[in-house]
């Protein structure tokens, strides 16, 4: 599938800030699940620099704006060819062993309810059948947290979302990570884009899901929000232990201004010809 992405994030500060620094993880992963045809990131008025590929394979770069800054607009425009690899992340070059993803963060720390959810989900499944266990966990999270926008916040933890029984893709991913860690499966948070048509139901063009490390297969994606594993509708940007670590845009502004964020994301099938 050839997808076109237009993603614009606008931060407005009132009063203006003295300076803004942002760490951007907005470049698609180099892997066999997708191939970039054309990709451009621009931040108006910013000095760009300090680009590097981290141990998880993500390309990260830095934008800096000197004040007074009243607006920062980050624009991502690109075209990308995607492939269905059955949810398996293939060919991503990373240096971090899956074992390093067994430690929870503040928001993926399991409580008793999450532990029970995890244990119930894998009950009766052969402990060696990790893939089956992973599917069962993803399904259990999907059942336990109803997709409901506007009920949780950025800082909501997996335990809080489960208690509430409601949440968005971030909460689903956090809860799945927490549940996976409970049964000893390394797990991480993944951000990206999702192409959807209206009849698909619960969708967010700017999307997040979880990856679990499965022996032999490697990292496999699970998206409880859509009850599926990532396929050719998904574009992968980067990963981390939780939403904060994996954030496509992580920024800090120096000053006392109020921040207002406006995000527009459009992912559609490209009109241009498929290249063979």
């Amino acid at each position: 599938m050839r997808l076109r992405v237009d993603h614009e994030s606008t931060y407005r500060f009132d009063p203006p800030m003295r300076g803004v620094v942002q760490s951007l993880r907005l470049t698609p992963t180099l892997c066999e699940n997708q191939q970039v045809a054309d990709w451009a990131i621009s931040v108006e008025g910013a000095t760009m620099g300090a680009g590097f590929r981290d141990g998880a394979g993500d390309w990260i770069e830095t934008a800096m704006l000197l004040g007074p800054v009243d607006t920062v607009t980050i624009r991502v425009e690109g075209e990308i060819e995607t492939f269905d690899r059955g949810g398996i992340l293939k060919g991503n070059r990373e240096k971090i062993p899956p074992e390093a993803y067994l430690r929870p963060t503040r928001v993926t720390k399991p409580d008793r309810a999450l532990r029970e959810l995890a244990e119930t989900a894998v009950e009766g499944i052969d402990p060696a059948a990790i893939l089956d266990r992973a599917h069962a966990l993803s399904h259990a999270v999907e059942q336990a947290i109803a997709y409901t926008p506007g009920q949780t916040a950025e800082s909501t933890s997996a335990a809080e979302a489960l208690a509430l029984g409601k949440g968005v893709c971030q909460d689903h991913a956090h809860a799945l990570i927490a549940a996976a860690l409970c049964v000893g499966i390394p797990a991480r948070y993944v951000t990206g884009y999702l192409f959807s048509t209206e009849e698909d139901g619960a969708q967010e063009a700017s999307h997040a899901w979880a990856e679990l490390a499965i022996p032999i297969l490697g990292w496999v994606g699970f998206d409880p929000s859509n009850g599926t594993c990532p396929d050719e509708r998904y574009i992968r940007l980067g990963s981390g232990g939780d939403a904060t670590e994996a954030a496509p845009i992580r920024g800090i502004a120096n000053g006392a201004g109020e921040e207002n964020l406006d995000v527009k994301v459009v992912v559609k099938e490209s009109q241009s010809q498929h290249q063979q």
Partner: peptide, 10 residues
């Protein structure tokens, strides 16, 4: 802010 990015990019 950004120190670690400069560090990791050498």
């Amino acid at each position: 802010p950004g120190l670690m990015n400069v560090y990791r990019s050498g």
